[in-house]
């Protein structure tokens, strides 16, 4: 088995093709180990279907070693796991194949598949970014926020600096710029009560989870719970929960007609 040293084109790499020292990458700029590996492969014009695993493994480990200490444990773990995978592949490639294993898959195959798949999604992410840029060129109503009403301060003409500063200090601080939140439709308890009545007209019981499942936001969950409590108070339904955090069952009250 031979490890192919790729032909290096491009100026990023030192003339000595076996050198890994010259290959300096800034790890922070990479999303993760796959992103880094792809960079190593693509920037050196390496054939992805014939990765020189020993060379890439070295470069990868050097890149990680330098910054490992500064990374969060989890992020470091992700890179180290890949380093281990590369080493395992390297060892597998060095092992002689027995005759019977003639058709065994190339140890690199799974990694290559993973790299290609990730690369494709990275491309798609790029096209999404383009779509985002195009969209950002269009503005809807409300883009320019209303101007806050001016506060009138009438100063006498003979104002001293001190008086001026006293007044200046009384001015309210500039408003904090809050991130924009899309206005959510306000969900009312009444609305949820109606929905509950309707749901319980069709069946005798349901779980609270099922009732809020289509929405999954606090804006819906809170009025839903309040609606349950209100209807329970009105003796329209009965709530049952074996213990805290267990499934909350909503039962239709069969004695409704009695009232």
């Amino acid at each position: 088995m031979t490890l192919r040293i790729p032909t290096l084109s491009g100026s990023k790499i030192a003339a000595d093709s076996t050198s890994t020292e010259a290959f300096v990458v800034e790890l922070e700029q990479f999303q993760g180990p796959l992103d880094l590996l792809l960079h190593l492969i693509r920037s050196q014009n390496i054939d992805i279907f014939d990765i020189p695993i020993a060379q890439i493994t070295d470069q990868f480990r050097r890149a990680v070693e330098r910054v490992e200490q500064r990374m969060s444990l989890e992020r470091a773990g992700e890179f180290l796991e890949m380093a281990a995978t590369l080493l395992r592949i390297k060892v597998q490639m060095l092992m002689p194949r027995r005759p019977g294993e003639l058709f065994e898959e190339d140890p690199r195959a799974e990694l290559v598949r993973q790299l290609l798949e990730y690369e494709r999604f990275r491309e798609l992410a790029r096209s999404l970014a383009e779509a985002e840029s195009d969209r950002a060129q269009h503005f809807g109503k409300g883009y320019i926020p209303p101007r806050p009403a001016p506060r009138e301060v009438i100063l006498p003409f003979d104002v001293t600096l001190e008086e001026f500063l006293t007044i200046a200090r009384r001015l309210p601080p500039p408003p904090k710029r809050a991130p924009h939140r899309a206005a959510l439709r306000t969900v009312t308890v009444e609305e949820k009560m109606a929905a509950l009545r309707e749901a319980l007209a069709r069946r005798a019981r349901l779980t609270f989870e099922a009732f809020v499942a289509p929405f999954r936001t606090r804006t819906h969950a809170v009025p839903s719970l309040l609606a349950c409590l209100e209807l329970a108070k009105q003796r329209f339904l009965r709530l049952h929960q074996e213990r805290a955090f267990r499934t909350l069952w909503i039962y239709r009250r069969e004695d409704l007609e009695d009232r």
């Binding site: 999303q31 992410a125 790029r126 999404l128 970014a129 985002e132 969209r135 950002a136 503005f139 809807g140 409300g142 883009y143 320019i144 926020p145 710029r177 809050a178 991130p179 924009h180």
Partner: peptide
């Protein structure tokens, strides 16, 4: 503006 479209990070994209 407060309504400007906030761009997403690479990880998010």
């Amino acid at each position: 503006s407060i309504l400007g479209l906030a761009r997403l990070s690479q990880a998010a994209l």
